[in-house]
Amino acid sequence: MESIIPILEFKKTCVSYTKQTMAVKYVSAAIERNTITAIMGPSGCGKSTLLRAVNLMHNLYSNIRVDGEILLNGENILLMEPIDVRRRVGMVFQRPAPFPTMSIYDNVLAGFALNGIHLSKSKKDEIVESNLKNVVLWDEVKDVLNKKGTFLSGGQQQRLCIARALAMKPDILLMDEPTSALDPIATKRIEELLLELQKKVTILVVTHNMGQAKRISSRSMFMYLGELVEYGDTETMFSNPEHERTKAYLIGKIG
């Protein structure tokens, strides 16, 4: 039964910043378990806005309205407590944001500290080690775990942030242009990491880098002016886009 329910489903999801204008218009789409789904589109098309709706980030700002439904394992998250939702939905931001006052070790465990969960020392060590190994950072930082998170390079910081999100064992990981602040080598490492991670967690990644979408995602959404224009297999979309606008974007006419 469970396999039939998609892990995440948008149903006529709308997001508006002001009463007159909608940033995301009636998006409906179901995300498949253990895949990487890319959300593409030009700047201002609403892709980040859609992503941030999934962990209720919009609740922080009183002017933003989210309508429709967003189902996480069949439950409408818009009716759930934000802290409950956010524990099950991890997020990685555009700029690496390790907590500057915390050590690398404490950064991985930040989710537990912020949820008031107390762990034994051995349990902590285990979580830190396994999650840093998950993001292929363990070998680089195992001797400097007590240094501040900001001591690391940008790419390492971003992997630390991914480890921090994964430590909470989320059902789904949201990534908002996770490599746009990184150099090409760091980007490549993150992409390889994501391909590996999809075995464990469903990933929804916003990118305006078409190459990246092509390289890592199995499914792609193309958004334009707040609407979901096309959603399908990445390969099909790139080789044979259904819509004129998708085609125009992919060949660089719009965007």
Partner: peptide, 17 residues
Amino acid sequence: PASLKEAGLALGGNKAR
């Protein structure tokens, strides 16, 4: 940076924590 607060909340912490 706003990202600091958002990153904290995104991990499921409440505002006070």
